[in-house]
Structures are given as C-alpha cells and as structure tokens.
Simulated assay, not measured.
Amino acid sequence: MELGAHLSISGGVDKALDRAEELEINTLQIFVKNPRGWTGKELTTKIANLFKEKSKAMNLASSVVHANYLSNLATPKNELYKKSKESLKEDIRRADCLGVNYVVFHPGNHTGSGIEAGIERVNKALKEIIKDLNPKAKLLLENVSGAGTEVGFNFEDLLAMTAGIPLDRVGVCLDTCHAFAAGYDLRSKDGFDRLLTEIDDTFGLDHLKVIHVNDSKRELGTNKDRHYHIGQGKIGSEGFARLVNHPQLKEKVFIIETPIDENGDDKLNLKTLRDLAE
C-alpha cells in the first residue's frame, strides 16, 4: 500500500522527505512553488539532486506534485489562460527535475462561458503543454466539488478534457471529499461501486493513479470542499475501509490532505487508515 500525505516544503523541497521519514510513509505530495502565487523560489540543480538522492535512499515508492491553485485552464479570459498555462508548465518542469511521478491539477472554472467551452479550453491547453514539454511525469486531472462554475466534477467531463491525448500521458486523481460534495455517496457500497464504475467506464481504473483521501465536513451533494479527518466527517470510517481494502485500489497512491487542528493531525489520520486496512 502506498500511503502518504501532502507535506510542507518549508526550508526546501528536500525537507519534505525528512518529514515523510518521520511519518514513516512511502509516498508524498508537495507543492513546488507558492500554491497561491504565480512565482516561486529557484529550484537549483543541487536541491533537485538532493531530493532525488534522498528519495532513492529512503525507497520512496512514488511522489506527487500538486499544481498551483491559481491556475485556471478553463477560463475564457486570455491573459489568465496564458498565465495558467505557464504556471502549470513551470510546475511540470520542476516535477521532472525532481523525478516526480505525477502532477495533479484542478481544471478550473468556466466563469460563465459554459461547461463545454471550459472543457475545450482545458483540452487545448493540455495538448499545447504536452507538445511543448513532453513531460516525464503523468498529468492527472483532479475531480472537483462542483462549486460555482467549476468544471470536472464528473469523470465524463474530465475524460472529455483529454480528447486526442493518449492516456499514457494523462490520467485522473480521485479526491474523496470532492466526489462526496459532488453527489457520489461513498458511505454506501452501491454509491462507492457507482463511482468506481464511472471511472472505469471513462478513464479505466488503470489510469486512476492517485487518490486524495479526505473525509468531508459538509453533507453529501453540497458542492462544498471542506476536508476533514478520516472517519470524523460525513463519509465516515466504513467508506474509507471500503476504499483502502478494495482489490482494484490497493496498489494506488493514497495521499491524505486532512487538516491539522485540535481534532487530529497527519499522524492520527495515517494511523486511522492503516488500522482500517486489512
């Protein structure tokens, strides 16, 4: 089982690996620049090599970069569209320098242009980015909660964003909180099976590479993205037990993005998932 957490890169990206060792995890997710800004500190060859050396020394099974939150590939606004493409390109360049396996990103918001127009914009951007960079990391579209004008809260729409792109270059990242917020009832076996069937019928489960394991602070179908501690939210322990023990998911990369507050931290949430795994 590949189980990890989204970790801080405070002090340098290699410091996230030290934190991973402390948590005794074999995978991790990081930002490679400011997630709420367009620029970041220079990633030197020395630091990139140190990251790769540490990853190898600790037998890290895989690693994930989460792209900048500001990027919006679905936008109809040309200036933001251009900045978003350049930002994602920079995240990919850095991921490839670090030898990271996957780059996860949110598709964005159509802001009134309509879902189809938003999907088309994302598709066009991805084709351009892949042509320009030929990335080593696989690019993963993350499902969203469906708030406002977000695109990509179902897997049919996410697949449409990859039209004309080989699925060895792109895939999908499932966020459990987002799926629950979008109306997928992960509390029940039927709801869980419906979700997996939809992913299998679109991308194929082989192209589901990363699962963001987050409980939800809000109720089913509210379109509210509010991550919570595993088993303490509205999805509950039974849903996560089904997730981590599913025979077709056991080899996936599980990453927690849960809060750190008075009710829990990474250690607690990782222990909860390990205890649920049979």
Rank of each mutant, 00 (worst) to 15 (best):
D14T: 12
K15Y: 09
K15C: 05
R19G: 03
A20R: 02
E24K: 13
N26L: 01
T27F: 02
I30H: 08
I30N: 04
F31R: 07
P35C: 13
R36W: 13
G40N: 00
T44S: 15
I47Y: 05
N49H: 08
L50P: 01
L50A: 06
L50C: 01
A57G: 06
A57T: 09
N59Q: 12
N59G: 13
A61E: 10
S62E: 07
S63I: 02
V64R: 04
V65R: 08
A67Q: 05
N68G: 06
S71Y: 00
L73W: 01
N78K: 12
L80A: 12
K82M: 15
K85L: 12
S87C: 15
R93P: 06
R94L: 03
D96C: 14
G99W: 06
V103W: 13
P107N: 04
N109T: 12
G112A: 11
S113W: 09
E116F: 03
I119G: 02
K124Q: 14
K127L: 12
K131V: 10
D132K: 10
P135E: 01
K138V: 12
L139V: 14
E142N: 10
V144N: 04
A147R: 08
G148K: 02
T149V: 09
T149C: 08
E150N: 13
V151Q: 00
V151E: 01
F153S: 12
E156W: 10
A160Q: 13
G164T: 09
P166G: 12
D168R: 06
D168P: 07
R169D: 03
G171Q: 08
V172D: 02
C177D: 01
H178P: 04
A181P: 00
D185I: 09
K189S: 15
D190R: 11
G191P: 14
F192M: 00
L195Y: 13
D201I: 05
T202S: 13
T202W: 05
F203K: 10
L205K: 13
D206L: 14
H207I: 00
V210T: 02
V210S: 04
V210H: 07
V213W: 07
N214W: 10
D215A: 03
S216D: 03
K217T: 08
L220W: 12
G221F: 07
N223F: 09
I230W: 05
I230H: 08
Q232A: 03
E238S: 13
G239F: 02
R242V: 06
L243T: 02
N245H: 12
H246T: 12
P247W: 15
K250A: 13
K250Y: 10
K252R: 14
V253C: 09
F254N: 00
I255G: 03
I255C: 03
I256F: 15
P259N: 00
D261V: 06
N263L: 14
N263I: 03
G264M: 08
G264W: 12
L268P: 07
L268N: 13
N269Y: 08
L273Q: 08
L273F: 10
D275C: 06
